[in-house]
Write a protein that binds this DNA or RNA. Sequence first.
DNA 1: CGGTGTCTTGAATACCATCAAGTCTTGTGG
DNA 2: CCACAAGACTTGATGGTATTCAAGACACCG
Lengths: 249, 249
Amino acid sequence: MTASATPAATEFIAARVHSTCANCLKYELNLCRVAAACALSADSAAQSARTVPARRIICREQDLHGEVPIICEGWAASVVMLSDGSRQILSFLLPGDIVSAALLFDARPQCLVEAITDVRYRSIDRIELKGILFKQPDRLETFLKAWIEEKARADQLIVDLGRRTAEERIARLLLNLEERLTRRDMVQPESKEMEFPLRQHHIADAVGLTPVHVSKVLSEFRRGGLIKISQRSLTVLDPAGLRRVAHMR
Amino acid sequence: MTASATPAATEFIAARVHSTCANCLKYELNLCRVAAACALSADSAAQSARTVPARRIICREQDLHGEVPIICEGWAASVVMLSDGSRQILSFLLPGDIVSAALLFDARPQCLVEAITDVRYRSIDRIELKGILFKQPDRLETFLKAWIEEKARADQLIVDLGRRTAEERIARLLLNLEERLTRRDMVQPESKEMEFPLRQHHIADAVGLTPVHVSKVLSEFRRGGLIKISQRSLTVLDPAGLRRVAHMR
DNA sequence: CGGTGTCTTGAATACCATCAAGTCTTGTGG
DNA sequence: CCACAAGACTTGATGGTATTCAAGACACCG
């Protein structure tokens, strides 16, 4: 992650950043293994894994030359830029996530992928991946189920943006992220603390609000004892309370 | 599963499906034909096509017993209901549309499908459809590309709801529908008039606004000479102007 | 004919955006 | 290591967009 932190923080971070591709196997897709196989068969293991510093753009629509990137380490976001400078984040990408399953079919997405933290990612050759998946129906099914989840989250976001208040949207985002991080063993079991590299403008761009208003809502959550945010880490102090705010039902 | 279908039966089914779903073949998926094949092999042609009156619910999450419905005729909407009574429309379903490609994998959607006009639809058996698609990679690819389009539209809606004004959202919805209807030859070539069964509350639920505000925006569009709405039909009088309002770029 | 659903319009209100100023943190170069 | 600049966050004041509430016009249907 971005350089100097206190020794304690460094340790804390290191504990979970050992999520190299070893951990990747725990995630839904096992795509790292697929990627490794691809790289192997293409004899291009060296070039297939790349590292990108925080705040840099990983790929735009144009420079996807038939590659399907998957996130090995770090946080990223797929972002739609509008001509007036405003942005909408479609989804946050966590380790083990594929940028978009649609890339399997050469569908140019209208968005770009931006690194939030330092990101290590791996590009799978589209044609090769397709070949592998189509020859192994069970693996294809796993892949498509991940795609379903991608779509389900998009649908949820539509409901959030269309019909929920600022408090609800933000609470739901936090709970969603907590759930996804838990599945990846990226939440400390006892303290429930988790790394949280998002700036408030990321949250704002994800839930369709302004950074100022996000700040106000988060302050309110903090005053209510629902969450604790400090040093780029988040703890949900009162999950039930937060869920109540989120209208989870 | 009476596997053997006599040539006569095939002909019979094909003829009947042609008569009812004549237009369907023009659409992206040709799924009516697939459906016909399924119905044939399942020897249940009679029960596979159903008609539902306007405003009725076609299916809920619960009563999807491994079936994938496709719309043959009429307009429908997939809707998410919230406990406070508000609603969000995820997408409008037009003839030839599959309700959701995700149903192929038994993913229970958390939405229900509602008929807007009288709707004729056909249910394909999930397992059978899956079998057919997995045995024909080219057909599977067509299917998955329709899925990509479904997802791309969802992403667009996220951007609309998150970052655009009421005028932009409504203009974009109208333009999107016009485009989809054009592809289906459901727009009169000369007059550019099209059937438009949506009530304003449908539009409101689709773009995350209230019916009152939709009414005001549509009146404004009408006053500006952008559109004409009457007798459940819509004409885009000034496509360029409407596109300008929509910030299409 | 009353009833229901749809649309319109106006007034009051709520929610969130914008603007602005200030604090604190983070990063960088001297 | 410090100084300075840039970015991130907070907080209050003000304004705009969309909601809510309400009343009335209109069409459609049993």
